[in-house]
């Protein structure tokens, strides 16, 4: 065979994993996630609960789960001019579309001074920019399929200082995958300058896999490649350990009863006063968490499926089960 072809084949072998090795590792692929987990365990009729953040807010309040305070909702174009009044007394706040996906259209204002409103990435916006953003949200710019949407204004979370140094701008949040009420895998998402202050891994945020047992770091990745130090702050990421871990898992696990969704991603942040606060629910959580943990989801999901529906377990029992079986020494 000719040389170039052989070289090319070798290169392909280096860059692509063999499917059987991925399967052996229990890596969950997009197709299997969609067919075997999302469409099987997440009832279509429940999707609006998580896709519409206003509805999420409602069930969260009903369930007594800690979440950021709702400051106001703007649902009509003529209400946009009321925005200034709504936010007048607040130092920091967050504007998001009720039907946004993938973190699109979320604007976080950390503080305000004479220059204007400071965004997380250091840019300064004036009230006109904010109003334009809101009217874009109303027109459906960020929603799936371009449907008309409403804008939600939430109070800002006062981040716990324990993560200073681990994150560059932005909100460090903890993503826990909850399967049938069991927290099966967790990671912390830390924004970087590459991710523009956003906590989305595909935009360049650092993902840190967390030990379900105690919330300590297992492994850190950026752009799906392992890293040891935070690219901006230089902190050793493996020293990270999430406090209030038990409480956090409890919050995550109780989202199952609250939403009824079997396969769920919960985004939780730590507030200085309130402790773990539920930021968002996601009915289609991404797969990068596996890379951050260096482990596939399938074996854990299978193990939970094998338990069957016979025993009705309380959230506490489920957490204990998960901490016992899914923690790594």
């Amino acid at each position: 065979m000719s040389g170039p072809l052989l070289n090319w084949l070798r290169e392909v072998r280096e860059r692509y994993a063999h499917p059987s090795r991925l399967a052996q590792k229990g890596v969950l692929g997009m197709n299997r996630r969609n067919i075997s987990y999302i469409s099987r365990y997440n009832d279509r009729s429940l999707f609006p609960l998580v896709d519409d953040k206003l509805q999420t807010k409602q069930i969260v309040l009903d369930a007594g789960i800690t979440a950021p305070d709702l400051i106001g909702v703007i649902s009509e174009q003529h209400e946009v001019k009321d925005l200034a009044g709504l936010i007048a007394s607040l130092p920091g706040f967050c504007i998001k579309p009720a039907h946004g996906s993938g973190g699109k259209g979320i604007m976080v204002i950390t503080r305000r001074d004479d220059d204007g409103y400071h965004k997380t990435n250091g840019q300064i916006a004036n009230i006109g920019d904010l109003e334009r953003h809101v009217s874009n949200i109303l027109a459906g710019l960020f929603s799936l399929g371009g449907r008309a949407d409403v804008a939600i204004i939430e109070s800002l979370i006062e981040f716990d200082d324990c993560f200073t140094g681990y994150t560059y701008e932005g909100v460090p949040d903890t993503r826990v995958i909850v399967f049938k009420g069991f927290p099966v895998m967790a990671m912390m998402r830390l924004s970087t300058s590459a991710s523009n202050g956003k906590a989305n891994l595909h935009q360049g945020a650092v993902g840190v896999g967390l030990n379900i047992g105690d919330g300590s770091a297992l492994k850190a990745v950026q752009f799906d490649r392992p890293v040891l130090l935070h690219p901006d702050t230089g902190t050793n990421l493996l020293t990270l350990k999430v406090p209030h871990w038990e409480q956090l898992l409890n919050l995550a696990a109780s989202c199952y009863e609250m939403s009824g969704l079997g396969y769920l991603g919960t985004d939780i942040v730590l507030d200085r006063q309130k402790g773990p606060v539920l930021l968002e629910l996601n009915a289609r959580p991404g797969l990068s968490i596996q890379v951050a943990n260096g482990e596939g989801l399938v074996p854990r999901l299978r193990q939970i499926e094998a338990l069957g529906n016979k025993h009705k377990m309380t959230p506490q029992q489920r957490i204990d089960y998960a901490r016992e079986h899914f923690s790594r020494k």
Binding site: R15, M30, I35, P226
Partner: peptide, 21 residues
């Protein structure tokens, strides 16, 4: 619509997972 296997680009994406062990 019923295919649950890996996508070609996932083989590349998850490659780091099978490398480090």
């Amino acid at each position: 619509g019923n295919y649950t296997g890996y996508r070609l680009l996932e083989l590349k994406r998850f490659k780091p997972m099978v490398e480090d062990k």
